[in-house]
């Protein structure tokens, strides 16, 4: 198509919904404000982490935003004296289970793309004040595909910040899940960032429906 670009994406995205009999304005009863965090026993978290004496699970929390977002936070031990908590967060974006929900979805709790240069700079400055920060040139890979990360250092400590979006709903994600966003922030005294990333590299998601791993796909 040259020149005229019209009636584009929105049509194609929604054409398959085949909604019938539901016309006019539907009142938006979804609130976008997240509900308060609730505690969650580590055993009930939808993620399994390798045993790590340096970064044990201190506590788990969960909260929902509207009807389709559930977030989990795993706070990990922090052997340094730096400010800020070590943690792994998961945001699970499920597909609405009603037609009304399909028409009216609250805005995403995380942006896509996850970071721009600008927002990443702001985030890293907030997470690691006063440290030297470098965004890794190449991505790394865990069980769920490639992820990006940054490393922050000062004289005594090293920190890593990794982020990942699982959005391959054709192959990896179950039908009901639209996307999973992961974020991992850990500070330690080891100078080698790979050691700090180990938990993120080896974690396994245990959501109610199975998320397939990259290796599963290769075997298929």
């Amino acid at each position: 198509m040259f020149g005229r670009s019209r009636l584009s994406r929105a049509f194609i995205l929604t054409a398959s919904l085949a909604v019938t009999g539901c016309a006019g304005w539907v009142e938006n009863n979804l609130t976008q404000a997240p509900n308060p965090w609730r505690r969650l026993a580590p055993a009930d978290l939808p993620v399994t982490l390798p045993n790590s004496p340096q970064f044990p699970i201190v506590a788990g929390r969960t909260r929902t935003t509207g009807a389709i977002y559930t977030s989990y936070m795993v706070v990990l031990g922090n052997p340094t004296t730096l400010p800020g908590e070590n943690r792994l967060t998961l945001d699970v974006h499920t597909l609405p289970d009603s037609l009304v929900g399909a028409l009216i979805q609250p805005p995403r709790v995380f942006p896509v793309p996850l970071y721009s240069t600008q927002t990443l700079t702001v985030t890293l400055a907030r997470e690691f004040p006063g440290m030297t920060v470098k965004v890794a040139d190449g991505a790394r890979r865990n069980r769920y595909g490639d992820y990006d990360y940054a490393v922050a250092q000062d004289a005594a400590n090293t920190c890593v910040f990794a982020w990942q979006l699982i959005s391959d709903h054709d192959r990896m994600l179950p039908r009901r899940i639209e996307a999973v966003r992961l974020e991992y922030r850990v500070c330690g005294s080891d100078r080698n960032p790979r050691v700090l990333l180990r938990s993120f590299d080896e974690m396994a998601l245990t959501l109610p429906e199975t998320v397939l791993e990259i290796d599963d796909l290769k075997r298929l």
Binding site: V58, A59, V75, G77, N78, T81, L82, P83, G84, E85
Partner: peptide
């Protein structure tokens, strides 16, 4: 004070 309340609670 270091904004690590979860560890503080523990």
């Amino acid at each position: 004070e270091l904004k690590r309340p979860t560890e503080a609670e523990a």
